[in-house]
Computed example of a mutant assay.
Amino acid sequence: MSNQDSNVNEIYRKPDCPWGKKAVTLLDNNNIEYKDHTFSDKDEENAFKEKHEVKTTPQVFLKGERIGGYTELAEHLNDSVDDDEDETSYLPVIAVFSTAALMALATQTWIMGFMGFSLCLLACLKLMDIPAFIEGFKKYDLLTKAIPVYGWVYPFAELFAGLGFLSGLVPNLVGSVSLFVGLVGGVSIFKAVYIDKTDLSCACIGGNSNVPLGVVSISENVMMAVMGVWLLI
């Protein structure tokens, strides 16, 4: 039992958590009025977990009684549990890099071709829906948080770097852009994942993706930085 008002229904969740969104949808579908509390940062979430002695969020309270997360709420409401939708997956990333590798092999352009094709494919996915990409990107990219317009510039910078790797033109400029983008991206992702310990999706393949932010995302940016240095020297 919690200290909540016994007449109030509440949900406490991270704004980007897919299970929190499912719980909200379930409450809406069952016409249950509730107060939606989203954590402003990790510290607030940790304080909530400590106070209520829970290890995960979301947490739903019905009439003052803690029901639990999405699965427990679905069982409490005798509703079916949806455990497939919104699950994270590396398949989109595997598809992009596998295709780039095959294109590099077919054209015998090897590592430079692989990087060029990879960046062009990734840029294309972002350019298909730039606002959706920015919505996810600004949640963890440090430069976009400080200078929002960078989110709009990023897909074009990535495409420029990819075309530069493939064409061999203006190597100093291409190397500088690739190094800058790779360093900023790598630092941003490292901070979000390993320092802030956020649970976010990577915007690397465009908006609305379910690719988890983590080591794959950092590796992509490290490769860009390394290739940038290689062109410059």
Results as ranks from 00 to 15, higher is better:
residue 109 T to H: 07
residue 144 T to Q: 03
residue 157 A to W: 04
residue 199 D to T: 14
residue 197 K to W: 03
residue 134 I to A: 10
residue 114 F to N: 10
residue 172 N to I: 09
residue 186 G to M: 10
residue 126 K to G: 11
residue 187 V to P: 08
residue 201 S to A: 14
residue 128 M to A: 13
residue 142 L to V: 13
residue 88 T to K: 12
residue 156 F to Y: 15
residue 104 A to H: 09
residue 168 G to I: 01
residue 111 I to G: 00
residue 204 C to M: 13
residue 157 A to E: 08
residue 190 F to P: 08
residue 138 K to V: 05
residue 177 V to N: 12
residue 116 G to T: 07
residue 128 M to W: 03
residue 169 L to Q: 12
residue 199 D to P: 00
residue 109 T to D: 07
residue 102 L to Q: 06
residue 171 P to T: 00
residue 188 S to Q: 10
residue 190 F to T: 15
residue 109 T to R: 13
residue 163 L to I: 12
residue 147 I to F: 14
residue 94 I to R: 03
residue 124 C to M: 13
residue 185 G to E: 09
residue 96 V to W: 00
residue 201 S to Q: 12
residue 128 M to D: 00
residue 95 A to K: 07
residue 95 A to W: 01
residue 204 C to G: 11
residue 125 L to T: 05
residue 178 S to K: 04
residue 144 T to W: 05
residue 90 Y to G: 01
residue 115 M to N: 13
residue 96 V to F: 05
residue 159 L to S: 07
residue 101 A to T: 13
residue 117 F to R: 11
residue 147 I to S: 03
residue 111 I to E: 09
residue 195 I to T: 06
residue 93 V to Q: 07
residue 202 C to P: 09
residue 202 C to Q: 11
residue 92 P to M: 06
residue 183 L to H: 02
residue 89 S to G: 05
residue 165 F to W: 07
residue 137 F to R: 04
